[in-house]
């Protein structure tokens, strides 16, 4: 409840601190400064607080072995762990998975070229570019011929190099 708005004629310091009026802007902290009690109210507050502290209701003593029961309850709780730590580990986990996939892909590719029974082995053994070209041409022609002979429609699709490549590895 804003009492200042309800009583525009109120000349208490609170009125000047209200941001809804059209008065000049007050310097930073003015509103809080005006909430500071006057000397008279400070005296009243001191007597009130002193009375409260002197006569505040005293909490009853805790039940016997309360601490033991509390620690027994704590013992049944798991060790608290930070979700933040788990979140921080998420990129590492994703990175590890990605690295694994890349590694597997590379390994697979290298396996094609280094497999003793594959075309890579032939290339590696000869070391000759001309032999490699001849091998590729033979493989290419053979693949086309095989596809043509097995395709009853006679419309072979030779554009799918990936199919040719992956089928030859035999792994």
């Amino acid at each position: 409840m804003n009492r200042n708005n309800q009583n525009p004629n109120n000349q208490s310091p609170h009125v000047n601190g209200d941001s809804n009026d059209n008065s000049e802007p007050l310097p930073f902290g003015s509103f809080e400064d005006q909430l500071e009690p006057t000397k008279a109210s400070q005296t009243d507050d001191r007597s009130l607080v002193a009375f409260l502290r002197q006569h505040q209701p005293v909490a009853p003593l805790e039940s016997s072995n309360f601490e033991g029961n509390l620690m027994a309850a704590i013992a049944q709780e798991p060790i608290p762990t930070s979700n933040l730590k788990k979140a921080k580990r998420l990129p590492q986990i994703i990175g590890a998975i990605a690295a694994g996939l890349v590694g597997a892909g590379l390994g697979h590719t290298l396996g094609v070229w280094t497999n003793p029974s594959g075309m890579g082995a032939q290339f590696a053994a000869s070391g000759s570019e001309s032999e490699l070209e001849a091998f590729l041409e033979d493989s290419w022609d053979g693949a086309i011929a095989q596809t043509s002979s097995t395709d009853p429609s006679g419309t072979s699709d030779t554009s799918d190099f990936s199919t040719l490549f992956w089928d030859t590895n035999g792994i």
């Binding site: 505040q56 209701p57 909490a59 009853p60 805790e62 039940s63 309360f66 029961n69 509390l70 309850a73 704590i74 709780e77 608290p80 762990t81 930070s82 979700n83 933040l84 730590k85």
Partner: peptide, 28 residues
Amino acid sequence: STLYQLCGETGLDDLVQDVFLRAWRGLP
């Protein structure tokens, strides 16, 4: 003491235990 001033005596032990259990779980 704070809980007693705010809530009274009824179930005070349970309230205190609840506070510290929540604190334990929320330490991170």
